[in-house]
């Protein structure tokens, strides 16, 4: 389903959910939960947003039922650790590639996805100072390296 323009701020988190439905349903679930919570704050009044959010809620309820035996879903504290570990794994993979001078699309995507998953961590509460810094760095790096590669420049 298409994300309404009013909810553009969560479109990449929703896309990340779709990309992880098979690969890691726990990540897919919490990305949807973030999109849901944030989407409700952005716009839950216009008909297109209400329709989108209602469908998103249906998906979340269904996923929670299907994954009820998974502790990362039934206990949010376990889910918090799962998302944080996954986000940092992507971050350190990309950081290692960066420090080794290996610049490619996959590392850019890893930096960017880690920043999105650090956003998702906000559903569990305020981000730690360390995670705030990781998020800022990952987002900046993904944009910087993307622009360098696009312009044929070597990132510094």
């Amino acid at each position: 389903m298409a994300v309404p323009p009013q909810l553009k701020a969560v479109q990449h988190h929703y896309k990340t959910a779709l990309e992880h439905d098979e690969r890691d349903p726990v990540v897919a679930y919490y990305c949807r939960l973030y999109a849901m919570q944030t989407g409700m704050k952005l716009d839950s009044k216009t008909p297109e947003c209400r329709k989108f959010l209602m469908k998103l809620m249906d998906q979340l309820e269904l996923m929670k039922k299907e994954l009820s035996t998974n502790e990362s879903i039934s206990q949010e504290i376990v889910g918090n650790a799962h998302i944080e570990n996954y986000a940092l794994k992507l971050f350190f993979y990309a950081d290692n590639e960066d420090r080794s001078g290996r610049f490619h699309k996959n590392m850019i995507k890893s930096f960017y996805t880690s920043s999105l998953l650090l956003d998702v961590l906000c559903v569990f509460g305020e981000l730690s100072e360390e995670n705030l810094q990781h998020r800022k760095y990952a987002r900046w790096k993904s944009t910087y390296i993307h622009n360098c590669l696009k312009n044929g420049e070597t990132p510094q």
Partner: peptide, 27 residues
């Protein structure tokens, strides 16, 4: 009509908030 549409929107908003709280075991 505007008032009716607004009432429907509010009711659906409440429904979403309740379902979200239930999903997160907050009620």
């Amino acid at each position: 009509t505007g008032t009716l549409a607004s009432s429907v929107a509010s009711a659906e908003q409440d429904e979403l908030s309740q379902r979200l709280a239930k999903l997160r075991d907050q009620i």
